[in-house]
């Protein structure tokens, strides 16, 4: 018993540690988010939060439900695989409320982004030196963007 008496301060110290550990566990139970560990070592609710971010690109399926005529034109030509918003930009707001004017893309910038000649582009991809090719005349003078082949009746 003498040992216990002389080691009393050590038991007090152990008590302090026990108290610390218990309060840590109590705080932990209170603070950790409820959905933590739902699917793995993370907050399960985060998945739904990320999935709820707003959409800006409506997707060509949505465009085509209204603009079926243009989808038709496009499907016959070389731009068949180019989605609407690749050129027109993100238009979810317009899909949500058609009264919002989507604006017209700037042809001077748009066409050359893909079609200006560069040895870095794939060889089979149609590309031109814009100045030589048209001498500054807008591309849409001859090409209809939704079906750019001139023989297909694109020239205005």
């Amino acid at each position: 018993m003498k040992l216990f008496k002389d080691a009393g301060h050590l038991f007090r110290l152990a008590g302090v540690f026990l108290l610390g550990t218990l309060s840590f566990l109590a705080i932990r139970a209170f603070v950790v988010p409820h959905s933590f560990g739902q699917y793995g070592h993370y907050r399960g609710a985060a998945i739904a939060e990320i999935a709820a971010h707003p959409v800006h690109f409506a997707g060509h399926q949505t465009c085509e439900t209204c603009h079926s005529d243009i989808a038709q034109t496009k499907s016959a030509g070389k731009h068949a695989q180019v989605n609407c918003e690749a050129c027109h930009g993100p238009l979810a707001k317009h899909a949500d409320d058609p009264s919002i004017d989507p604006g017209k893309p700037d042809v001077a910038v748009l066409c050359v982004r893909c079609h200006s000649a560069s040895a870095a582009r794939p060889k089979d991809f149609p590309q031109v030196d814009a100045d030589q090719h048209s001498g500054g005349i807008p591309c849409t003078t001859c090409h209809q963007p939704h079906n750019p082949v001139i023989a297909a009746g694109g020239a205005k």
């Binding site: 002389d6 009393g8 301060h9 007090r12």
Partner: peptide, 18 residues
């Protein structure tokens, strides 16, 4: 001190070993 004033030789000996 954590409320313990025990500095007897034996207590200090225990401290030393621990």
């Amino acid at each position: 001190t954590l409320g313990s004033q025990n500095v007897s030789e034996r207590a200090l000996h225990i401290d030393e070993r621990v």
